[in-house]
């Protein structure tokens, strides 16, 4: 089958369509629920589309919910943790991928060790550390926890992407008199952009959605992150699905927007000059 044939394209869109329905059906259900009135949500049989659009849920969340505060708290914590993690992880990944250090493979496995243990049991000792540092009930505690928890994956992912990039280009740059490290930064790093973007998104989402650390370390309502805020919100309106779903939709859209932005501008801009050239 040729990839320009109509049949091939139909098949492609068909399979994509099935995957897409699977991926977004629950989300669509969230959106239409958010647009229903309170009474319409719990009717039998359930209706897929609201009989008329109700924006009150969104308004209610926007105005009297604290979700906006939680939203910005999450944004702050997840962004700082992500940027820090990615910088440290890039350095480590370069070390693993481009330098020969005896024992570095064992070290890499050791990095993953912390992730092999159920999180519920790591929370108490983490809490002890934060208490000794006297940073409980601060965002700093969360940032430190998230860095330590996202870093191993990020290092593994980035090492994988760096490994996939041929070394000849940085070697030719080195002939021009640049140091090895300099050549990697200037030549290899831009080529690895898709990988760095993927790793960044992964790190961001892990930090953005984390629940149990945030729930244990944070006491003050004004410092709550989004998952905790949503959980509190659920305690309050547990079966007011229209309100809950409006909250969920509002919390999801910015991440999608961020991703689309990264896809369009960063990846497209950088890769066009690199591998493809």
């Amino acid at each position: 089958m040729n990839e320009n044939s109509t049949l091939f394209n139909i098949l492609l869109y068909f399979v994509l369509g099935i995957f897409l329905i699977f991926a977004i059906f629950p989300f669509l259900w969230m959106v239409t629920t958010a647009l229903k009135s309170g009474g319409e949500v719990l009717t039998y049989p359930p209706k897929i589309f609201p009989s008329s659009f109700h924006w009150e849920s969104f308004q209610k969340i926007w105005t009297d919910g604290n979700l906006m505060i939680y939203f910005f708290n999450s944004l702050k914590v997840a962004s700082i943790a992500t940027v820090t993690t990615i910088i440290i992880a890039i350095l480590a990944a370069i070390g693993f991928s481009r330098y020969d250090l005896p024992g570095s493979e064992s070290l890499k496995v050791l990095f993953l060790v912390s992730q092999l243990f159920p999180l519920v049991l790591l929370v108490t000792p983490y809490y002890n550390i934060m208490r000794i540092l006297d940073i409980l009930d601060t965002h700093l505690a969360l940032i430190i926890a998230y860095i330590s928890f996202v870093l191993p994956f990020s290092v593994w992912m980035l090492t994988n992407y760096f490994n996939a990039i041929p070394r000849d280009m940085e070697e030719s740059a080195m002939i021009d008199g640049t140091t090895k490290f300099g050549a990697i930064i200037r030549v290899t790093l831009p080529l690895a952009t898709p990988g760095i973007v993927a790793t960044t998104i992964n790190a961001f989402i892990l930090a953005w959605n984390e629940f149990i650390f945030a729930q244990t370390f944070i006491d003050s309502p004004s410092l709550r992150t989004l998952p905790i805020g949503l959980r509190a919100f659920m305690g309050q309106y547990q079966t007011d699905w229209n309100l809950l779903m409006a909250g969920a939709v509002i919390s999801t859209i910015p991440v999608i927007a961020l991703f689309m932005f990264l896809q369009r501008h960063v990846i497209a801009g950088l890769t066009s000059g690199g591998v493809k050239g």
């Binding site: 897409l20 991926a23 977004i24 999608i256």
Partner: peptide
Amino acid sequence: QKLRFKGAFRGLMLIPWTIPGVVAAFT
């Protein structure tokens, strides 16, 4: 592949992952 609205499709497929786990489970 070469698709129309590729960026939008990629974004949409990402949705489940971006929904906070607590909310996803309740949904």
